[in-house]
Design a binder for these strands. Structure first.
Lengths: 334, 334
DNA sequence: CTGAAAGCGCTTACAG
DNA sequence: CTGAAAGCGCTTACAG
């Protein structure tokens, strides 16, 4: 049971003071080329890794940031984590992954506890934590840097990476209109999710742009879950005349719509087109594969970490969506 | 921009030495009830949280463990994380989530770097990191405690939480036989995944138990991906006579099988039954919803963390699977 | 370009 | 039951 080497052992072997080893580790100037090489050689040979705890305690920074999330979708959480973690790691930071409960009374004090305990240098907030205004206020007051991914509220202030949900929903609606649909239904997400209102707005705007009257009968509220997609679809298919296309606010609800259509033996996409949003892994696992909007989740998280830690001075970045046409949509029936 | 209070400020206000505050924080004995109450009151009022870095540096333990994973399935990773994190947190430990590359040459040195840097008290390995024997050896040599989730190799030694894949695959095969199937195909996962061999073995044993001859023609190798499920299914449906049921080694491949069946307009489950394994979120999003085996992923991770940190002295725990019958399987066609 | 001193906020080992 | 001293492994601020 060997234990970790320390900076002093390295310095002894390299024949320098431990302060010089510290300089090499931190890439400071004012170290002669030869000294630097010698130290680096010893560091590599001993497989020396500086103690994170000691650096944090002694220094002004901890090189630690936390990603806060409260999202029930494994797919979304996984990709946000992956994108943020890779970028943080590349920039020399450790990322702490912290699930929270946005509705809990003690959200703010729980997060502040983490901030203190870990001496955090900053935070990355993913939706819906982005909408916890009391938390944003507390972080502002504390002077702690943070960046938000796809924020709804206070969009224009502070650091944020985002995608244009309105434009993306317009693109999908346009696709459906282009292949001949006029009676296009929309299943929206819960009103508490800002993205779901933006998507509804895009659907509305695009209909208007084509001179198609907005029909409130064709909009049903779901909650982004598969089951709510099935219920909304049953309601929509009872309208007369029946819609020829259903645009669901996310892929889970679109999968629910597909299931109902299969159950009722409706020909897809011959009699009914169904579209989703997100391009989650579900989109290609269902039949027919979903026409959807690819949301660059991973890239959004990557960009957020870069804004927080990259030191470029930029504060906001906007990434593009992509319309992906698969087999769940087709020409409107005659 | 206020900053964190320290143990000394707490002690000053409470009118005791900072050593006494330390005793209260660590729940040590030999503190009078009254002193304890007074200190706790100040701690709560200042919202004081001890510095993790300082505790780690001064103490013998860091209260930090890492979860190592290298799994392409968001669903699996999410549930392993959730289960492990909740238990660690309840036991007063922080869990570092660390993606690794099991095939990389520097796997061992990367993990050891993390161990040193973070002063880890232990590790939780999820598959397929569980099979990296060089890593297990290095941890053993270092005397570092670790626990494995669903290990394949060295099953009987060390701490581990597991499920009986052989028995689970037998249960599924039995279900198919019970509803009248005799020509049952199996899509296995890659041979590098030990679980996939166990599932094949269970399929084989159960056929034998019913006096059904094992037919190598009815076993095709996939790699746990949706696409490999589609390819395997096309190959299987070309056999004559056609199998009446397909048992896929996981839900992703089963979803691929469903897609091919839909494409070929095969009646499900009238002409063909399809079964999966895992009960991932996919299982209920496809049509028809999948008959599958529920693998208690979250509970396995929870149990692993408990074995590692709970101090019960137990070393192994085995959890039960559950057969879940949905609409993708039914009676064999006449 | 290099080093000796002080200190970060705690726990440990030792006294009383 | 309570406290004063030493030290964990580094960075910071100061000298030379």
């Amino acid at each position: 049971m060997s234990s970790r080497p320390t900076i002093k052992e390295v310095s002894k072997i390299a024949g320098v003071s431990f302060k010089t080893v510290s300089r090499v580790l931190n890439n400071e100037k004012h170290v002669s080329e030869e000294t630097r090489r010698r130290v680096e050689e010893v560091v590599a040979r001993l497989n020396f890794r500086p103690s994170h705890a000691a650096r944090t305690l002694a220094g002004r920074r901890s090189f630690q940031v936390a990603l806060l999330y409260d999202n029930p979708s494994p797919y979304y959480v996984y990709h946000v984590q992956t994108g943020a973690q890779q970028r943080c790691s590349a920039l020399g930071y450790r990322l702490l992954l912290q699930p929270v409960d946005v509705l809990a009374d003690d959200l703010v004090s729980n997060v502040m506890a983490l901030v203190d305990e870990a001496h955090l240098d900053g935070l990355i907030l993913s939706p819906p934590v982005t909408e916890a205004l009391a938390l944003l206020d507390a972080l502002d007051q504390r002077g702690l840097p943070y960046v938000r991914i796809a924020p709804g509220a206070r969009k224009d202030s502070g650091m944020a990476s985002m995608m244009d949900d309105v434009a993306a929903a317009r693109a999908m609606t346009r696709h459906l209109v282009d292949v001949g649909h006029r009676r296009i239904a929309f299943i929206r997400g819960a009103k508490t999710h800002i993205s779901s209102s933006d998507r509804l707005e895009g659907y509305r705007q695009e209909l208007e742009a084509h001179g198609i009257a907005f029909d409130p009968e064709l909009v049903v509220e779901g909650d982004y879950s598969f089951r709510s997609g099935t219920e909304a679809t049953r309601a929509l298919l009872a309208r007369t005349p029946r819609p020829t296309a259903i645009f669901a606010g996310n892929d889970d609800m679109a999968a629910g719509a597909l299931a109902v259509a299969h159950e009722l033996d409706i020909d897809l996409p011959g009699e009914l087109s169904i579209a989703g949003f997100d391009d989650s892994d579900l989109a290609q696992a269902v039949w027919p594969p979903l026409t959807t909007i690819r949301q660059p989740v991973r890239e959004l998280a990557d960009a957020a970490a870069e804004l927080l830690l990259g030191g470029s001075g930029e504060t906001q970045i906007s990434l593009d969506h992509e319309l992906i046409v698969r087999k769940s949509t087709g020409p409107a029936p005659k």
